[in-house]
Structures are given as structure tokens and as C-alpha cells.
């Protein structure tokens, strides 16, 4: 990824002698990574061309492109693709904006800012399955605290997690609650690494607060912003625990993301062939979307 940098660095700084021992240390780790990625992937690729239901006594047999055809010609796949992309885009965009705002609040020290920062980090450290359970408890239509709040402020009671118009937004809100702190942390660190002199200089030149943000913060923070958002993007595709604990893809299939659908077809319907084919289609989707950001990232990286 940092080809340009490193080649120059390598020639001027690396010692002349070649130690084979250096490379020996790599082997165990690389073997583990290879063993647990390449072999299973090839196996799964083969399975994706097979008809294989886990409890079918007839075992499995090749059925060519049938699994892919079934998935791509059905409406379910396109629906989950839409849901997934919508989820990823909405969460990443909203989380980024919020995180940026919160980072601006915490940029300068204030009383208790360390304590507050530590407390804000709690959601992202909480196991997603716990967050999911907690969400189900709090949004419950009978005794959930959220319903009590909405009742008090006059919005009435709602079946948040089973309502046609509320389930998906609620999932997004919970994700935002959990992961905004992650971006906040990265953005804050990025802001604090902006040299103070630059800000002072700009202020002396009579720049407004907005201009400082626009002309100094954003350009200098471009790389950290990109890294944070890319990481978040990759992780947002993974949402599973939250859906497992709350809506299980419902109501109907309105919160059925690709992750959830793969789980459903693989471990509920036990159709391993379809689930494998689905997985590859999902992987391609993730690679395309995150590829855009990764390419930008490596371009930035080379410029630095």
C-alpha cells in the first residue's frame, strides 16, 4: 500500500546483511492466516456450486450455477442488498456527522472532559449482542422505557421493533448510538494533532471559525477521516448480533440485511449451498463498496 515510501526508505535505511531469521518469524502467522482463509474459501466456492442441505441424507451434488441463478433471479436478494446498502450508508453518514460535531465539543479541554470522554466510549466497548438485548428491552412495546418517554412527550406508544415504519430506523439509531463513539475518538485524536500554530495563524489573519474548520481542519484531517469512515464502513456491513437480538429480520423482511439472510439460509433452512453462494455475492458487494474508499485511502497514503 505504501510502495513509494517504502522503497526509498528501504534502500537508505535497511541494513545490508540479509537475515533469513527475519522471515522465519513470519511463517507461523502466515500459515494460520492461509489455512483459515484460502482453504475454506476454496471449499466454500466449490460448495456454492452444489446443492447441499445439511440434513438431506442424499448428501450433496453439483448443480452448476443453480444457486446463483436462484438467488439473483429471486426478489429476496435485491431486497436485502437494498436494505444492507441503506443501512451502511445511513449509519456511516450520520455517525460521521455526529462524531465530528461531538469531537468539536470536546476538542478543547473543559471540566471533567476526561471522565466524559471515557464514559462516551462505553457503548462501543459493549458487546453488540448485549446492545441488541438492551435495545429490545428498552424499545419493548409493553414495558420499554422508550415507550414511556414517547408517551410522556405526547407521541404515544409504538411497537417500535415490529412496526413497518419504525423497525429499520430503530436498528439504525441503535447502531449510531453504539458506533458514533468510535468515530468520535478517531476524529478527536485527529483534531488534536492539528498544529496549534496553524489555527492561531489563521485566526490572526482574521479567519472565522467556519473558515478555520474548512480550510485547516478538514484538509489536515482528510486522511484520518477517511480511515475512520472506511473502518466503520467495513464493520457496518457486518451487522448481525444486533438483528439477531432484536428484529430477526422482521417485520416481514424489512430489517433483513445480507448478513442476516445468509445466517437464515445457512443455519435455519440449513441450505449450505445457497448460503455459500450468497456469501460470495455479499463479499463482492462489500469489496466493491469498500474498494472505492480503500483506493482513495491508498492514494492519500501515497501523497503523504
Amino acid at each position: 500500500m505504501r510502495a513509494k515510501d517504502n522503497s526509498s526508505e528501504g534502500s537508505s535505511r535497511a541494513p545490508k546483511r540479509v537475515h533469513s531469521g527475519r522471515y522465519l518469524a513470519i511463517i507461523p502467522g502466515v500459515l494460520l492466516l492461509l489455512g483459515l482463509s484460502v482453504f475454506p474459501s476454496v471449499y466454500a466456492l466449490i460448495v456454492s456450486f452444489q446443492k447441499w442441505i445439511l440434513t438431506d441424507p442424499n448428501g450433496r451434488h453439483f448443480n452448476g450455477l443453480d444457486n446463483y441463478k436462484d438467488i439473483l433471479l429471486g426478489s429476496e436478494f435485491w431486497h436485502t442488498l437494498k436494505i444492507t446498502l441503506l443501512f451502511v450508508i445511513l449509519t456511516v453518514v450520520i455517525e460521521s456527522l455526529l462524531a465530528y460535531g461531538i469531537a468539536l465539543i470536546f476538542f478543547r479541554p473543559m471540566p471533567f472532559h476526561r471522565v466524559m470522554r471515557a464514559l462516551i466510549l462505553l457503548p462501543m466497548l459493549t458487546a453488540p449482542i448485549v446492545v441488541g438485548m438492551l435495545a429490545r428491552f428498552m424499545f419493548d412495546s409493553q414495558f420499554g422505557i422508550i415507550n414511556r418517554f414517547t408517551e410522556i412527550i405526547g407521541l404515544g406508544r409504538h411497537d417500535f421493533l415490529s412496526g413497518l415504519n419504525t423497525a429499520f430506523p430503530v436498528i439504525i439509531i441503535v447502531d449510531i448510538w453504539q458506533w458514533t463513539p468510535f468515530l468520535f475518538l478517531i476524529f478527536l485524536a485527529a483534531m488534536q494533532s492539528v498544529p496549534e500554530e496553524l489555527i492561531e495563524a489563521a485566526k490572526l489573519d482574521g479567519a472565522s471559525k467556519f473558515e478555520v474548520i474548512k480550510n485547516i481542519f478538514l484538509p489536515l484531517m482528510k486522511y484520518p477521516l477517511l480511515v475512520g469512515i472506511t473502518l466503520r464502513l467495513i464493520d457496518s456491513f457486518r451487522v448481525y448480533d444486533l438483528i439477531y437480538a432484536t428484529t430477526r429480520g422482521g417485520p416481514i423482511n424489512l430489517t433483513s440485511t445480507m448478513s442476516w439472510s445468509i445466517y437464515d439460509s445457512g443455519f435455519k433452512v440449513l441450505n449450505i449451498g445457497i448460503a455459500s453462494a450468497y456469501s460470495f455475492l455479499f463479499l463482492i458487494t462489500v469489496l466493491i463498496v469498500s474498494g472505492i474508499f480503500l483506493r482513495q485511502l491508498s492514494k492519500e497514503n501515497e501523497e503523504r
Binding site: S141, Q142, R157, D159, L161, S162, G163, P251
Partner: peptide, 14 residues
């Protein structure tokens, strides 16, 4: 009752 669409055994019992 309201919320019926996510009624489980549990909710009916309650």
C-alpha cells in the same frame, strides 16, 4: 392489544 404483531408466548402470558 397494541403491539400484537410482535407478541410472543411471553407477551400473551403477561
Amino acid at each position: 392489544p397494541p403491539g400484537a404483531n410482535d407478541f410472543t408466548y411471553d407477551s400473551v402470558t403477561q
